[in-house]
Design a protein around this nucleic acid. Structure first.
Lengths: 126, 126
DNA sequence: GGCTTGCATTGATGTCTGTCGATACAAGTT
DNA sequence: AACTTGTATCGACAGACATCAATGCAAGCC
């Protein structure tokens, strides 16, 4: 199985070859600024836990009411972190009646993973 | 390349690393705190550019004297960012005569990539 | 020794960020 | 319409962070 990177992504129009990979070439300022946003969102333990709780959910969706009680933090704080994750393109949400459900956006996660992955083994690059 | 791959955290297997993956199971507080460190280090455009400049270098090493002039920032600021990247386990350095050389630590990068990568399909989550 | 260059550390400063309580908004229930 | 519950927003505040100038330290050179 070779790598089959589907490039579906909500915002794949602005960055043509979004990120060929960390080790492929130096990033320019714009690329770095765009990539820093999701990584910054991942750079907080609470948000990492939130994201993992959401992404590991079987049905793919989690109600906020299931997330908030898992932390020793106030409800506004959790809501704030969810907002940052959403603004980073890592999750999205929808209100359904009284409750709001969040789900992960695998395209963004895989894009970041592909960016970080170093071309270990084989010397096909360059 | 004398010393490389100083395992920072847990044990880096091959593709699976310490943390089984974002979508596999919710992180506990300790795992989240440990993972947040490198992601936080990646959450700055300057550090992303620095890391990409280092990781994409053919010989695997870059002299600080080649990094500093690429930014409109003071030399202490660049030094500060390099220190943060090093503390995050993303790079390491060595003084060699007058100059200091930095190189990337692929083990950490691949570990983060493996953590972010979502299961393509299947992957029955128990 | 003294001088020069390369890089790290220190101390200061303005900005950003995580957190909270209070409040507003949305939707269901009575 | 009132009440209750779930979630988001607002305003404020302490701590963290990015940045700089000044300084210190290491190593080569006069």
């Amino acid at each position: 199985m070779s790598k089959q990177e589907l490039v579906v992504l909500g915002r794949a129009d602005e960055d043509g070859a979004c990120c060929p990979g960390l080790a492929a070439a130096p990033l320019d300022e714009d690329q770095a600024a765009e990539l820093a946003k999701p990584f910054k969102a991942l750079g907080d333990p609470v948000r990492l836990r939130l994201l993992s709780m959401i992404a590991s959910r079987a049905g793919g969706e989690v109600c906020v009411c299931d997330l908030t009680p898992a932390f020793d933090l106030s409800q506004p704080t959790i809501s704030h972190h969810l907002k940052l994750l959403r603004q980073a393109g890592l999750i999205d949400c929808e209100r359904r009646g009284t409750w709001v459900y969040y789900w992960a956006l695998p395209a963004t996660l895989d894009r970041l993973a592909a960016f970080l992955k170093t071309p270990r083994t084989s010397a096909a690059t360059a």
